[in-house]
Structures are given as C-alpha cells and as structure tokens.
Simulated assay, not measured.
Amino acid sequence: MKSTTLLVLSLLFASFFGYTAAQKVYSWKDENGVLVFSDTPRPGATEVKLNTQNLTMPAADTSILDTAPSAVPVNFKVSIAAPANEETVRENTGSVYVTTRISPRFETGFKVQLLVDGSPHGAPSNSTTFALREVFRGEHTLQAKLFDANNKLVSVSPVSTFFMHRTSINNGN
C-alpha cells in the first residue's frame, strides 16, 4: 500500500509542474486507505497548500544520450583456403575448385573477386567458392580481394601458388 501511495504522490507532484498558484488541490483517503489528490473538492477532503509556484527538478546530465556509440571497426581478412599454397593439383580436365576463407564472417552485401595469375576471374561474387576450368599445366597464382556492400576494398589475401599437373598428349606424361 505504501508503494501505491508513493506512486500516487509521484504522479501528483509531476502533474503540478504546469499548475499555477490560483488552482486548488484537495486530498483525502479512499476506502482502501490510499491517499488521493484531486483538483475537485469532495466531502471530507482537505485543501493542500502548495509552498511554491514553480517546482523545478535538478538538471540531469544527458550528454551520454547524445553521442552515437562508436562502432569498433572489424578487421576482415580474406585468404585462399584451397588449393593450399604450393599444392599440386592433379586433374586431367584442368578443373580446379578454389575456396576462399573470410574472417571473422562473411557479411551480407560483401563480394569476393578472385584473381588468377594476376587477372580477374569473372565478376566479384557473393560466393566464397570458385570453379576454374581448362587450367593449363604449370605454376599458377591465386589471390582474393574482399569488397564491402559499398564496393570498398576491405581486404586482400596473400598470393597463393598452385601447380596444375595434367597428362601431356605430346609425350604421354
């Protein structure tokens, strides 16, 4: 019951901020014993005398609400996961599946550009796996570039080398 009384008092005093001294306030206890305040008199009510016309609250520091939380920049890293650096790929059709790894995680709107021997392989993609076809025998380099949703370069992988081993039709190797 005390908490109800405190709530009623708090609401009452909060509502008095806009009142002038010419207005009258009355109080009484209801059938449950709760103290009630009103601007309408009733039998058994007593007039409450207000000591001040202007009630003021101390100013609260709200500066912490004005500043936007500073976003911690995420340092994304992209790397070539497969084929491993200096791995030999034995595939007579010349097919190689390249997998990139992004950490901490691949975000919506991000795109990966695969470079094969320094040249872009297709357009940037929202996939982290690429299929290369008809790769010639010999040494090849791979590199990946990660772009954010605004097409800003976020990360570049180290260059990775792989060796394509295909049977030669010339000498049977």
Rank of each mutant, 00 (worst) to 15 (best):
M57E: 15
N32D: 11
V74A: 05
F136N: 14
I102S: 09
F136Y: 10
L115A: 12
V135H: 01
F106M: 08
I102G: 02
N51I: 11
G138V: 07
V98M: 00
T99C: 01
G122S: 07
P120A: 15
A131M: 14
A21E: 13
V36C: 13
A68V: 09
T100K: 00
N92V: 07
T108H: 02
E86W: 11
T40H: 12
A22H: 08
G118N: 09
E139I: 11
S38K: 09
T88L: 14
I80L: 01
T129N: 05
T52S: 12
L132T: 01
T20F: 08
P120R: 10
V116S: 08
S27R: 11
A60T: 10
D117N: 15
P43W: 08
N85L: 14
A81T: 02
S125M: 12
T46A: 15
E31A: 15
P43V: 04
S70I: 05
E47M: 14
V72T: 12
K77T: 09
T88C: 09
F136M: 10
P69F: 04
Q23S: 13
V98H: 00
D117V: 07
N32L: 13
E87S: 07
M57Q: 13
G122C: 05
P58M: 14
S63D: 08
R90C: 06
Y97D: 08
Y97L: 10
